[in-house]
Design a protein around this nucleic acid. Structure first.
Lengths: 337, 337
DNA sequence: TAGTTTAGGTCAAACGTTTGACCAATATAC
DNA sequence: GTATATTGGTCAAACGTTTGACCTAAACTA
């Protein structure tokens, strides 16, 4: 059995006053003589009194706790986002109750209920990749529990969100490739049906259009293709390619693999840009240029939006399409002549 | 203002019974007719009644919440550990309240107090690297709050812990290098004053001893050395080395860098083993052999120990020196003749 | 002097839930 | 027909805290 901690009533009893007086002495609500106040405070200190937030929560109908749902912990992007969130919430005196969904919507629904049951003051969630149900999110809003979506959002739900600007991110990468002289730029696409895949592809196309480069269908490859490396190799062998933009850093490494097998030097003959700025990008040889999505800032912004909404439920809808940062490393070099 | 959720009293009032009856109908404490029971249950369902855990916590002096302190989220090791912990605690119906210490002991002390204030039922903590104070940990124990240390432990505190067997991990790596024919094995040491650094070094020495290889002081390098790569290169150039074991995967990459600059082939002329099994190990070229510390299992075991202690505070001290797993990849090859 | 203010408290309700003690009516035992 | 057990409930306390309403005595006002 856990030890009972000293309560306001304990102090009241030993000092022959009422709990009310103790409460007011400790919280400064007046109505207590200087003498008693000091007496109470010193006894409280001596007994190591710490207010019980549970009792306060029950009374005030708030828990100073924020619920968090993320797909998984082990993805670097989410870890960074989590850090960003934590940095804001801890400073504001909130605690973090964390659940994972493992990209499974049923798990996500369960987590939402767990958090609502726990009476969190607000929820920050990254909804799972494949989502077709929204009742649970609607339930959160019907409950007047502020909700902020991060990284992914849904048009069905009108609530603040922060996502990354995939279009601009992709555009900036391909634009850079063009500026350093690439004219034959390959793109490796992400998983089907994901808005990120679509938006990055659109950014790619827009950059080509800006530089008046005609789109070459042969250079658009599917990342999910089982013999992707072979496909890439055939493009490289035919000398169709002088630059490449991949949906992710990991797909960019497939390009590395193909180039290495053909002993095509990067960046000598081929400039490559990935996406996400995984830590590995700086360790691989050559270090990989990539698009940083600023996950920390995403977390910070999402957390701020949530606090804003907690403090003022009637606040105007805050949404943000976060700027990305193009990080140029060794894998890109200006083409000579 | 957040909406008031329907309480047991609401149900009691509309049904003209007392809260006690409702409570017993819902929790099955008998003393309620079948007819009323069904009536109550159906109304509860209709109103979407969900018990308020705050009230229960106040009464039962337990929160069904476990506090967690980790140095940082963005380290892959801790993410995996976190996953392991979460997998156990969520199944057991506990929630996770998470704090970070950023390897700063003062932050750690603050976090401990936050968690104690929140009345968590137990705490799992990875104490910060440099620690010289233990009052806060002692405070946890004085409070009868079960505490489990993971990844790092302290001899000053008698509480369950789970750590990784660095000695055996290092031993297995160097033993493997010997078995594939290496006789001139370099070691790159970790940060000073860390027990992990010491233990891995001891494992290295023990493996050499087993294979009757004399220790060559020239091959022991400090990872913190600013011109580490140059030092490595000079060893390689002099042909003093045919194998290498590094304190971490990242230090192993420094060996890669040196070898690459001298165009010494890995694993053709040099076998390399790192430590930690960072995800990057499988993407680097050649893929890196390494020692996996099983962080997920560490989390699982730590969480189980905590639950055991929560359920039986008088349980015998559980501690574990977790086995590591040697993962052999391309960076190791048997030396020919 | 009578009336009013002020300082320094106390009292009780409220938050939502559980649970031991109690009670009345009915059913059973002998 | 009386004693006892069972059924189906109610009551009130408890968890720790806050807070508006109330109270009393002393001090001030006119």
């Amino acid at each position: 059995m856990k030890k009972k901690r000293t309560s306001i009533t304990d102090i009241a009893n030993t000092l022959q006053v009422t709990p009310s007086t103790v409460s007011r002495a400790l919280n400064g609500g007046g109505k207590v003589s200087e003498k008693k106040r000091l007496e109470i405070i010193s006894l409280a200190k001596k007994l190591g009194y710490r207010p019980n937030p549970i009792a306060k929560s029950l009374l005030e109908n708030r828990t100073n706790t924020i619920g968090l749902i993320i797909p998984e912990f082990t993805h670097h992007f989410y870890s960074r986002m989590l850090s960003g969130i934590e940095s804001v919430t801890s400073k504001a005196g909130y605690q973090l109750l964390i659940c994972t969904s493992n990209e499974d919507q049923n798990q996500e629904i369960k987590s939402i209920h767990t958090l609502l049951d726990a009476r969190v003051d607000g929820i920050i969630a990254t909804i799972s990749k494949m989502n077709d149900k929204f009742e649970h999110l609607q339930e959160v809003m019907d409950n007047d529990t502020p909700l902020v979506l991060v990284d992914r959002f849904s048009e069905e739900i009108e609530t603040p969100y922060v996502i990354s600007d995939d279009f601009k991110g992709a555009f900036s990468a391909v634009d850079h490739l063009c500026q350093i002289g690439c004219r034959k730029i390959m793109h490796i696409k992400g998983p089907d049906n994901l808005s990120t895949t679509f938006n990055r592809f659109m950014g790619y196309k827009e950059a080509l259009r800006k530089h008046e480069i005609e789109l070459d269908e042969r250079l658009i490859l599917e990342g999910s293709n089982p013999d992707l490396v072979e496909k890439i190799k055939s493009c490289l062998e035919n000398n169709w390619v002088d630059g490449a933009f991949a949906y992710s850093d990991y797909l960019a490494f497939e390009i590395y693999k193909a180039a290495s097998q053909l002993t095509i030097p990067i960046p000598g003959q081929l400039s490559v840009i990935g996406y996400a700025d995984e830590p590995i990008s700086t360790y691989i040889n050559p270090t990989l240029s990539t698009v940083n999505q600023q996950p920390f800032e995403m977390g910070v912004t999402g957390a701020k939006y949530l606090l804003n909404k907690i403090n003022d439920p009637e606040i105007a809808l805050e949404i943000k399409n976060l700027e990305t940062k193009l990080v140029i490393r060794e894998s890109c070099r200006r083409l000579e002549g």
